[in-house]
């Protein structure tokens, strides 16, 4: 029996992570072939993952590295003395 939209939603995340069984994958892709809403949801979640994984998102503040180095240098000298 074909998967319903609700059944697809439950599997979407695992499907994107490539961790569904071959049977579920086949059923899900059959559904996606005709359900534009669910197909757009898969694309949308995939886009979100691409966007947030990009290092420009949640980039370190400017100067973070040099301030960290300075603090480590200061403290590690203290620890080793």
């Amino acid at each position: 029996m074909a998967m319903t939209c609700k059944e697809v939603w439950k599997e979407i995340s695992d499907y994107i992570d490539n961790s569904v069984t071959p049977d579920v994958r086949r059923e899900l892709e059959l559904h996606l072939a005709y359900c534009r809403h669910c197909a757009a949801m898969v694309d949308g979640i995939h886009n979100i993952i691409v966007l947030v994984a990009d290092e420009r998102t949640f980039a370190l503040p400017v100067g973070f590295d040099s301030r960290l180095r300075a603090r480590l240098k200061d403290k590690l000298r203290f620890y080793s003395s």
Binding site: A40, M41, N47, T57, F58
Partner: peptide
């Protein structure tokens, strides 16, 4: 159960959108 909103297509991967600071802020 979480009911997702029914949205229009969003098929392209807009990675170039991240060049814009306001887009990064929206995501964060």
């Amino acid at each position: 159960e979480y009911m997702p909103q029914t949205l229009g297509d969003w098929r392209e991967i807009p990675s170039e959108a991240l060049e814009r600071k306001e887009v990064r802020m929206v995501i964060e």
